[in-house]
């Protein structure tokens, strides 16, 4: 967890204390205000002499911005996936060429693989089935296998790129 997140939570709790209301709404509001304050002070917050700090403040803002970006990409893919499912299910004749492909993972961390596998399941025509022992290959079931290469590229260029930026 980035150390600035702790600062941000402390600011949110302070806001709740000053408002004398401990509701979730107040906490979220306080968190947003705190985020704004920290962002305004971002140049002051980094201690240039202290090299031990593994995370600079910029990382916190960058990760937050990327997470929001990921959320919108994900939402877009989810809606596309659902429209496709509706189209397939309600078509008179089932036109499918299902199959399982092996997808080589770039993401290294466990959290990143989990997020990617979950996202793959909720995006158009793909379902993650299994992970190899060495955590390098993800087995993905696809409804349309006409072009396995293109499918792989589309995962690599959208979902995996964003997953990598957030969780490595």
């Amino acid at each position: 967890m980035p150390y600035l997140m702790v600062h941000n939570i402390v600011l949110a709790i302070t806001w709740c204390l000053l408002q004398e209301k401990f509701t979730l709404v107040e906490f979220v509001l306080g968190y947003l205000y705190g985020y704004g304050i920290l962002y305004a002070l971002r140049t002051v917050l980094d201690d240039k002499k202290d090299q031990r700090q593994s995370l600079k403040s910029g990382d916190y803002f960058a990760i937050t911005a990327r997470s929001i970006g990921y959320f919108f990409v994900f939402l877009q893919e989810l809606i596309k996936a659902n429209l496709e499912v509706v189209k397939i299910v309600l078509s008179r004749e089932l036109k499918m060429t299902p199959g399982i492909i092996a997808y080589k993972l770039d993401v290294k961390t466990d959290a990143g693989i989990t997020l990617l596998a979950n996202s793959i399941t909720l995006t158009p025509g793909t379902l993650s089935i299994d992970l190899s022992e060495d955590r390098k290959t993800l087995y993905v079931h696809a409804l349309h296998m006409e072009d396995a290469e293109e499918l792989e590229q589309s995962i690599r260029n959208s979902l995996e790129k964003y997953t990598k930026e957030i969780l490595g």
Partner: peptide, 12 residues
């Protein structure tokens, strides 16, 4: 898998 399936990488 269904008969129409064209690839099964997981079989390995």
């Amino acid at each position: 898998l269904h008969d129409r399936s064209i690839a099964d990488a997981l079989h390995a």
